[in-house]
């Protein structure tokens, strides 16, 4: 059998919809884990079925709560608006037409006082599962079902070698590694799924690699 029992009975989640509520919360939680820390405002664009039927499924609250770091089983998702207000985080929603995107897609733009905007796009693909498809304008593809390191880097020789060396030293086994670049020598997204959670020291070491721009770790 190639399906886990806990994909049948599970996930434990906030209702009413695994795709429109739980998946939305996870999508935004992972997106905010990829974006730089400390955003001051969030602009959420909803496409397809998220835009059409999201209202009755709390998709808006789930996305906002996820971006604030709440898990898809946290009952505070209901109070996402109040919590964002209390934390002084501004938010806005709008619909967007993304013809080639999956039915349940959202684009999250994180806004900062002192940094340029950062955009993450992804889709909720059913049963609470998600896929991240775009990071700050560059294509990518991962599900965040394992601990994941997202490295923004310049497309230069040797980066992958240095990165894998640090992971080897930290005893972290690479399960999947994926590199997508905008253009030759331009920006690239390096997404690494690992078999173990990624500690702060490893993240810090990765940040010091030549030609690495930023590193974020999404632990389970």
């Amino acid at each position: 059998m190639n399906i886990s029992l806990f994909d049948v009975v599970g996930p434990v989640m906030i209702g009413p919809s695994s795709s429109h509520t739980a998946g939305a919360a996870k999508l935004a939680r992972v997106a905010s884990g990829i974006a730089p820390r400390g955003f001051a405002a969030l602009f959420i664009q909803l496409a397809g079925s998220f835009a059409k039927t999201g209202k009755g499924h709390g998709t808006d609250k789930a996305l906002l709560a996820g971006a604030l770091g709440f898990s898809e089983s946290d009952e505070r998702i209901r109070e996402a608006y109040q919590i964002a207000d209390e934390r002084g985080i501004k938010y806005a929603f709008s619909d967007i037409d993304l013809p080639d995107a999956h039915e349940n897609t959202a684009r999250l733009t994180f806004k900062y006082a002192d940094k340029p905007d950062f955009t993450v796009e992804g889709s909720s693909i059913g049963g609470g599962r998600i896929i991240i498809t775009e990071i700050d304008g560059s294509k990518t593809s991962f599900n965040a079902e394992a601990p994941t390191i997202v490295i923004r880097q310049l497309d230069k020789p040797g980066v992958v070698n240095d990165v894998s060396g640090i992971l080897a030293e930290s005893g972290i086994n690479i399960a999947v590694m994926r590199l997508d670049r905008d253009s030759r020598g331009g920006m690239a997204n390096c997404v690494i799924e690992t078999d173990a959670n990624i500690d702060e020291n490893t993240v810090s070491a990765l940040e010091h690699v030549t030609n690495v721009v930023s590193v974020r770790a999404i632990n389970l």
Partner: peptide, 21 residues
């Protein structure tokens, strides 16, 4: 009711059918 009210449930196998098991 809990599912519709954005409460915590266990999908079994889905959220919409979470009351049966």
């Amino acid at each position: 009711e809990v599912n519709a009210s954005m409460g915590r449930i266990c999908a079994a196998p889905t959220a919409g059918s979470c009351g049966i098991l």
